[in-house]
Amino acid sequence: MYSQLRDFQYLDDDGIFRNVPEYPEFPWFEGIVNAVTHRNYSLQGDHIRISLFNDHMEIFSPGKLPNIVTLDNMKYTRYSRNPKIARVLSDFGYVRELNEGVKRIYNTL
């Protein structure tokens, strides 16, 4: 993923050019982790897809949103479709299971 994202430069107030990534690492990494964690694995023939456009990124995970989660409440509603996958990713330090990831994505962008 790193190789697909661009870096931009800007002239800082001190007269030195600084690099800034196209997207901060946390939002896209968390989006991918969420897609893996909450994917509907009963659906076959499709994959998690990441699409980059000039003005945005889309992370697609096959299947509908799980259980009680909607687009309106996803920042505040906690539900794990695949708790065993979530536990393994938590053990490796990729998931905290505190329903903080989506909120942090929105706050970071």
Rank of each mutant, 00 (worst) to 15 (best):
P27V: 13
D91N: 09
K64E: 11
P66D: 00
H38P: 12
D13Q: 14
Y79L: 04
R87E: 00
R18I: 08
Y10Q: 12
S51M: 05
Q9I: 11
I50R: 03
V33G: 12
L5C: 12
N34V: 10
L5K: 14
F26T: 13
F29S: 15
S3N: 11
D91M: 07
D55P: 02
A86K: 00
L89E: 03
D91T: 08
S90V: 01
L89A: 05
M57I: 10
M74N: 05
A35H: 11
D91R: 09
P24Y: 15
R87V: 03
S3Y: 12
D14P: 09
P62G: 02
P27C: 12
I68K: 07
P21N: 04
D7A: 09
L43N: 06
N40R: 06
V69K: 04
N19A: 11
R18F: 09
L43R: 06
I68M: 02
D7K: 12
F29A: 15
G45T: 03
M74V: 03
S42R: 10
R18Q: 15
E58W: 00
S51A: 06
M74T: 04
A86W: 01
E25S: 15
L89K: 02
R39D: 08
D55V: 04
I59Y: 10
R6Y: 10
L71M: 11
Q4C: 11
K84C: 06
R96C: 06
V36K: 09
F17G: 08
D12E: 10
H56L: 00
M57K: 06
M57T: 08
F92V: 00
D12G: 10
M57V: 09
L5F: 15
Y94E: 04
Y41W: 01
Y94K: 00
N67L: 05
F60D: 07
I68S: 05
Q4L: 14
Q44M: 00
D91E: 11
A35K: 08
P83W: 07
G93P: 00
G15N: 11
D12S: 12
L11G: 13
I32M: 15
V88G: 03
P27Q: 14
R81F: 02
N34C: 13
F92E: 03
L65V: 08
R78L: 07
R78E: 02
I50S: 09
F26W: 13
S80V: 01
Q9F: 10
H47F: 09
D46F: 01
Y79F: 08
E97I: 03
T37Y: 05
A86V: 08
V20Q: 07
T77K: 09
P24W: 13
T70I: 04
H47Q: 09
P27N: 14
E25C: 14
E30F: 14
R6S: 13
Y10C: 12
F53V: 01
R87S: 04
R96D: 07
H47G: 07
N40Y: 01
D55C: 04
F29G: 15
P83L: 02
D12I: 08
R18C: 11
I32N: 14
V36C: 14
H38W: 06
N67A: 05
G45H: 00
P21C: 00
I32E: 14
F26I: 11
Q4A: 14
I50H: 05
V88K: 13
F29R: 15
E58N: 06
P83F: 03
D7H: 11
N34F: 13
M57W: 07
M74R: 07
P27G: 13
V69A: 03
D12N: 12
K84Q: 12
N40K: 05
M57G: 04
D13E: 15
F8D: 10
G45L: 01
R39S: 06
